[in-house]
Design a protein around this nucleic acid. Structure first.
Lengths: 335, 335
DNA sequence: CTGAAAGCGCTTACAG
DNA sequence: CTGAAAGCGCTTACAG
């Protein structure tokens, strides 16, 4: 522990009190002369304030807990990177927790999060029980849900407009002349899965069509691939809306590979998210773009507002995204 | 700040001293009776020790800083998730920093890392200057390089055996009957890029062949795609070893898409990493597997050893991985 | 503006 | 085994 220089060391070298040192680093008032003395002493010594000590006394750790479930879905690493950058600009950093589980594991995760005295929590697509919600509230720790809503609660959340987005896809598919349209949903235990499914079904009806069949893809590649086979072989689908891009890739692989089916000539596929891979040559997936950047900014804005003002309202923000048309689905004819 | 219960609150309720409370939670000796009293009081109050306060006094934050550059290469989110899990079992958590930059930005990142009093740092494929290395050493913060070596220094690092791995690929390609073999390297400013290139060239020679041409792919998709076009069109390559899977996907997309070239009938492609997508139907990429799990365990073991014992040697660990044969490259004939 | 002092929530010698 | 006390490195009223 050689390198440990404290504010006392700096004070001594600068010939001022330790309080003075603290003041210049915490941005409190100090005369120009003091500032200069302190800064040059600090530079000479390589001093930097200890955030833990500061956090202990201010009650602000400047740490945001991020809990995320699906790092294999490229949407999340992408969001993570942006979240990290936007937060960094505001002086916050991310303590990351990955958890596939639900229930007990999530609970432990929250315990640990709180042990570190995080200033706020972002939960990306993980289900939060009411108990956990209450515990955060009791501890005064703001929580915002990223890309996954929760019914009932007054939880802060930012999602894309899943209902509308799915409806856009429905309309696009119907106009594209598809007759037998199926849906492989996201996990129906998630609001996201439910909303996209519902928006899609309503959209189909609004366009004068109907949903032939729907299977829960559980956000899993293998489940989705199997579902695609069932939809095509048993239900004769000529178009499938898949609940997210991650599953859509698996569907395309399975259709083209094992089943020798041409996409989009035999079956059209549409996804949801517009992750970077959707634009790759192997897939060229038509999909609904989730505006990650705007979602990230909205999330950070909401969270920081709640941190700075405990009475800030828990916003529920819905962000609209465009349909990105590529080649994985037949396109409506111009006329 | 309602929910803030401290060890004093617990002590009071349990009818013991605050020291006693601390002892049972820090695992120091305490009688069974005291333990019981404290635990039940703590449970009733929902008490959990404040890690920041504990860290301040023990000098152990239980935070590991992870700095990572390429979250869009699936290798890293995957490694991140495993790192997080393995570390969690040991009571550590990850404060994550993303940085594309080199130089000044990395320096700032390290400043911030140290502000949080991290117990150790894992740098995943980011270049660390000697100055930074020295600063970590001075501060007594162990640093281990993950998946990227550094020449000269005595830095702890864990990488796969890039030299040998690339040599295996060379041998495989020559045996596969390829005549004009090219290489799109990883960024040649990185040791990883250099080693794979060198191992490949030597391997080719050892197998009685030679490298037709090599282009730096910079770990970028667009650069790699362009390089592939040059290698095929101008140098007549019938096989290309691409420095990592992430670029290899771009190469396959470009060859098959824009250039209407069949992989592997016209050109064989081999990658490096074996990220999960390599197994996907759209690519079925033949590639050298980096044993992420073993690399992660080795990284954590080394880092924790250095944290626990400041005199622990800075291990330089190299882990061997197998060639995973799929369909993106012609396979040597049995005989 | 500035310094002395209290205190954030803990751990850990030190006596008993 | 247990409690009183000092101290980790800071911030922030409080006097001057």
């Amino acid at each position: 522990m050689k390198g440990k220089v404290t504010s006392f060391d700096v004070a001594q070298r600068a010939g001022v009190s330790q309080s003075a040192v603290s003041r210049v680093f915490s941005g409190a008032s100090a005369s120009k002369a003091t500032q200069d003395k302190v800064r040059s002493a600090a530079d000479a010594l390589g001093y930097r304030p200890n955030r833990l000590a500061r956090g202990l006394i201010t009650g602000r750790s400047k740490i945001i807990g991020l809990v995320v479930a699906y790092l294999d879905n490229q949407f999340y690493p992408d969001a993570l990177e942006r979240l990290s950058n936007v937060l960094k600009e505001q002086g916050y950093h991310i303590l990351i927790f990955t958890t596939k589980g639900r229930g007990e594991e999530v609970k432990q995760t929250f315990d640990q999060l709180m042990d570190y005295q995080v200033d706020g929590i972002i939960a990306a697509s993980v289900g939060i029980s009411d108990e956990l919600t209450n515990r955060c509230a009791a501890a005064g720790i703001p929580l915002v849900l990223f890309n996954r809503g929760q019914r009932g609660g007054a939880l802060a959340q930012v999602t894309s407009d899943n209902l509308q987005g799915a409806a856009k896809i429905a309309s696009f598919l119907v106009k594209g002349g598809h007759r037998r349209i199926g849906h492989i949903s996201g996990w129906m235990g998630s609001i996201t899965g439910q909303d996209r499914a519902q928006g899609f079904a309503s959209g189909l009806q609004a366009a004068g069509s109907e949903l032939v069949h729907q299977i829960d893809g559980m956000y899993r590649r293998d489940t989705a691939a199997e579902a695609a086979e069932t939809l095509v072989s048993e239900h004769g689908c000529d178009a499938i809306f898949v609940g997210n891009d991650h599953m859509a890739f698996a569907v395309m692989d399975h259709l083209r590979g094992a089943m020798k089916i041409s996409v989009p000539n035999d079956v059209s596929i549409v996804g949801y998210d517009d992750v970077s891979m959707a634009a790759w040559g192997a897939y060229e997936l038509t999909t609904l773009r989730q505006p990650v950047n705007r979602m990230v900014h909205a999330t950070v804005d909401t969270l920081l507002a709640m941190i700075e003002d405990a009475d800030a309202s828990a916003d529920q923000i819905t962000i609209d995204g465009p349909l990105v048309v590529r080649t994985s689905a037949k396109v409506p004819k111009e006329n």
